[in-house]
Amino acid sequence: MVIRKALVPGGWDAPLGDYRLHLLGSGRSIATTRLRIDWLRRFARAVDRGPWDVETVDVIEWSAAHVWARDTRRSALQSVAGFYAWASERHAVGVDPSRVPTVRASAPAPRPADAAAIARARLSPDWRVRLAVRLASEIGLRRGEVAKVRGCDLVRDLHGWSLIVHGKGGKARTVPVPESIAVEIQGHGPGWLFPGADSGHVSAEWIGRLVGRALPRGVTMHALRHSFATRAYERTGDLVAVQRVLGHESPQTTLRYLAIADETLRAVVEAVA
């Protein structure tokens, strides 16, 4: 039996379509845009009325009615507040975005993959898995960035090879690449490293599932990025450099990736003592 989601109430489809275009036009990624619109559809079904008949108290009551993790609640409320901030410039709305509760991000919970998990995935008979694991665990790429790697994005300078990485929101950055990875990428030609049907390359979801099947249960491809961040910071102590390699806008985001070992914290205290 196929279970279909309830349709959103009348009056939502057109503004959600316009808001989707606004998000994409302002540089939000397809994944972020999809997340925001999905939350708004959930909200619309819950309040069961048109978008211009909703009031701030409806937003608060909707949030209060759910037992969500902090980051889930934060995402939900940000999505609704963002929509009404955009809509207030075009319509008479009953929701005051400034009065929608804000939720702080949860405490950092880094989940780096351990060496055994990475070694296991590196033994995969599928070259795509082996190379994707290296790109995530050795230079810290997101799964969406791995999906978009092209041979022609390799560049050579006086210090060695680097890769132009196509990151979130259409932002590009240049990341140094070990010689062995550069040679392996070159071996697959100048085009997409992982060809597919998503604008010529595979989707982030597809590459994530492919790598995930080679990792132990409960370990995701994103955990490889956490592992890179943790090891990079432990070996260099340079948070800003790690931030730049990962493509984070803020060092606070980078800190959420770092699983700092107890012995490192002890060394800090003993260095002062």
Rank of each mutant, 00 (worst) to 15 (best):
S98E: 14
G196T: 00
P125K: 10
R111H: 14
L163P: 10
A147T: 01
L123I: 00
A214D: 04
V177T: 12
E89P: 04
V133F: 03
T174W: 02
H201N: 05
L163T: 10
V219E: 01
S199I: 03
L123M: 12
H91P: 01
K148V: 03
G140Y: 00
A117D: 08
R209H: 12
G218A: 06
P176A: 13
K148H: 12
K148Q: 13
S98H: 08
A87W: 00
R122H: 08
L215V: 03
D157E: 12
P125T: 09
I185G: 02
G191A: 02
G191Y: 00
A109Y: 02
R128S: 14
R142H: 00
V149M: 06
W127H: 11
C152E: 14
R217P: 01
L131H: 01
S98G: 13
G140L: 05
H159P: 00
R213V: 03
E138V: 06
I139L: 12
R122L: 15
L163H: 06
W161F: 13
V219R: 03
A172C: 11
K148E: 10
I118C: 02
D96I: 01
I207E: 08
V183Q: 15
P216I: 01
E184W: 04
S124W: 05
S106D: 15
R213Y: 01
M221C: 12
G187F: 00
A119E: 15
P112T: 02
L215E: 08
S98A: 15
V183G: 07
V149N: 04
E145D: 04
V146W: 00
S137C: 06
L123A: 13
R122M: 14
P112Q: 00
A115N: 09
A115T: 11
A182L: 06
S98R: 14
A85M: 10
Q186Y: 01
L210N: 05
G200F: 10
D198V: 09
S137V: 03
V165C: 06
A117Q: 08
F194Y: 15
L158V: 10
L163K: 09
